[in-house]
């Protein structure tokens, strides 16, 4: 009963914050509202006994991605002006696209045969995740790290000051 109440509170936090992200007229408010969405998801992971995933969500999304987003938003000039986010253009196409996307998602939710475990497994997951990454899923894991490495090198190349003399030669 308490668990259900907590679940609905977390769901409210997630959905409510996401609504603020989408509808707020102030883009800085939108960015900070992402915190609520991420924290709600962390709470839902904890309720599902996915301890390691919850902590990684907190570390990567709140500690990394959210802070970088806030940085990007705050360092952009004139970001607090409402005119930056263009609200008047392309309403009809946006409506159509979101309606189609929503229909597909709702269809998928109702069509998927959701697997319901007989009993919730509560136990440490870190050990199993670590073993799976280096054993069964070693190849996807390594591929993901190569993608990240490529992104890192790309970022360095893009952000490097252009060497004029090298270009002239």
């Amino acid at each position: 009963m308490v668990a259900q109440a907590i679940f609905y509170l977390l769901a409210l936090l997630t959905v409510g914050s996401s609504a603020v992200v989408a509808f707020s007229r102030n883009i800085v408010h939108s960015t900070f509202a992402l915190l609520g969405a991420f924290m709600g998801v962390v709470g839902i992971y904890v309720l599902l006994a996915a301890d390691f995933v919850a902590m990684v969500q907190l570390l990567v999304y709140v500690g990394g991605i959210l802070v970088l987003t806030i940085f990007a938003v705050m360092l952009t000039q004139g970001i607090a002006d409402v005119t930056i986010s263009n609200r008047a253009v392309a309403r009809a196409p946006a409506l159509v696209i979101s309606a189609v996307a929503a229909a597909v998602m709702i269809f998928a939710v109702f069509k998927t045969p959701w697997h319901q475990g007989a009993k919730v497994m509560v136990g440490p997951t870190t050990y199993g995740i670590g073993n799976a990454f280096l054993d069964t899923y070693a190849l996807p894991f390594e591929l993901a790290s190569i993608v990240l490495l490529a992104a890192l090198i790309g970022a360095v190349v893009i952000s490097r000051p252009i060497d004029r003399r090298a270009q002239e030669q």
Partner: peptide, 11 residues
Amino acid sequence: SVTALTVVGVL
């Protein structure tokens, strides 16, 4: 990871 929340508050 929870101490990472400080950054958001400070920003």
